[in-house]
Write a protein that binds this DNA or RNA. Structure first.
Lengths: 147, 147
DNA sequence: CTAATTTCAGTTTAACTGATATCA
DNA sequence: CTGATATCAGTTTAACTGAAATTA
């Protein structure tokens, strides 16, 4: 983009925005090539790491809006990666579970995503990548629970 | 947001996205309180730092689309912060210039923005802030001109 | 004729809100 | 009755595309 103004170039919020836009595009395009989207990964990874849950709970765990979660699960179910099963203990809920091919799909997405992250971070050394992750985690955690 | 999955939590592209979203919101809300938007700042700062230019050139310098630049300049002109003057040497162009009150407005925005950046980076030490800016600049520059 | 400029009108996508029906 | 859930329908905003009119 070749920003000309030094003040603009150095503005942290703008640097964050630009880096994030680039990362998002890289990830979106990379996942699109295998017919996936980042929300798919978020749901599959969260199911694998934190176990089955209701849609509302999945929404809280991933940050995807309850209303958008419906569409994501429709797609994952259509493709056979996740299942909705009515919760017998609480009939308002569905229990979302990972299928066997969902687990396989997650492995695939993990591999593809690892490559995309490597591409995104290619100008940085291993130490710098670790530094960046730590700094960003601090920012994000502070925002999640200031004080 | 309390992301539960370790893989999600550690994903650099997601950390970037979340930090950027938070920063953007902070900046947008902060600027809105004084009736400004980040595009206004981008244009005023670029005019001050790199001098008058045509709209197309301003678009290249700031990264704002030529089509969106029209609306931004309409607002800046309405508020008396910038002027459009027809270029006598090239009648396709307008020359955009900063007015006196535009310069004052820029000073105001600089102050407000500095406070917002401080808020955004509040969980980081001065050294960490410098580190973060350097790492992000490396990412952004590499994307602007890979190789 | 080709290319650049300003402008307008429009698309796409993500993030978000609100409301409804069902059930605890 | 209050509150949570799944779902649907819709808004808002930023990022982006396309094309027309003018001039180099």
């Amino acid at each position: 983009m070749t920003t000309t103004s030094p003040r603009l170039r150095a503005l942290p919020s703008r640097l964050l925005s630009q880096a994030a836009t680039h990362g998002d595009r890289l990830v979106s395009e990379g996942l699109a090539r295998i017919g996936a989207r980042k929300w798919h990964y978020a749901v599959l990874a969260t199911l694998a790491d934190a176990g089955p849950a209701s849609q509302a709970e999945m929404s809280r765990r991933t940050g995807i809006y309850r209303s958008d979660m419906v569409a994501v699960l429709n797609e994952l179910e259509r493709d056979g990666y996740a299942h909705r099963v009515p919760d017998l203990d609480d009939h308002r809920r569905n229990v979302i579970t990972l299928t066997t091919s969902g687990t396989a799909r997650l492995r695939e997405l993990d591999t593809v995503l690892a490559g995309l992250q490597r591409e995104l971070l290619s100008p940085l050394t291993a130490t710098q990548r670790k530094q960046l992750a730590e700094l960003l985690t601090q920012l994000v955690d502070h925002h999640d629970s200031p004080q």
